[in-house]
Computed example of a mutant assay.
Amino acid sequence: MDWRLIMLIACIGSLSVSPLGAKPNLGVLNAQGSKQKSAQQLQQLAKSITVKVLSKDFLGSGILIQKNGSVYQVLTNAHVLRSGNPPYQIQTPDGRIYRTDLSKMSNRSTLSYFHGNDLAILQFRSPQFSYKVASLGHTSTLSVGNEVFAAGFPFDSQGIQDTGFVFRQGQISLVLDKALEGGYRIGYTNDIVKGMSGGPLLNRAGQLVAINGKHAEPLWGSPYVYQDGTKPKPSLLKQMSKYSWGIPIEVFMQMGSPSFINNYSYTDIQPEVNQ
Rank of each mutant, 00 (worst) to 15 (best):
Y98T: 04
S106Y: 10
K132A: 13
V148R: 00
S135F: 06
T163R: 14
E147W: 07
T92N: 10
T141D: 15
N117F: 04
Q123N: 13
P154N: 05
L102E: 05
F114G: 01
T92G: 04
P87W: 02
K104C: 09
P87C: 02
N107R: 07
G84Q: 09
I97L: 11
I90F: 12
N117D: 11
Y113N: 10
T110L: 14
I90C: 05
D118N: 09
D162E: 01
Q161A: 04
F129E: 02
D118F: 04
D156R: 08
F153S: 08
S109G: 03
F155P: 01
G116I: 01
F124M: 12
P93W: 02
Q89E: 08
T139C: 09
I90D: 07
T141A: 15
S109R: 04
F114D: 00
A150D: 01
P154H: 06
T141R: 15
H115Y: 12
L142N: 14
L136K: 11
F114P: 01
R96L: 14
P87Y: 00
Y113F: 14
L111R: 02
A120V: 04
Q89F: 10
S135H: 10
L111Q: 06
H138R: 13
K104Q: 12
V144Y: 09
N117G: 05
F129S: 06
S103Q: 06
S103A: 12
S126L: 15
D156L: 12
Y98C: 10
G159S: 00
F124Y: 14
A120C: 07
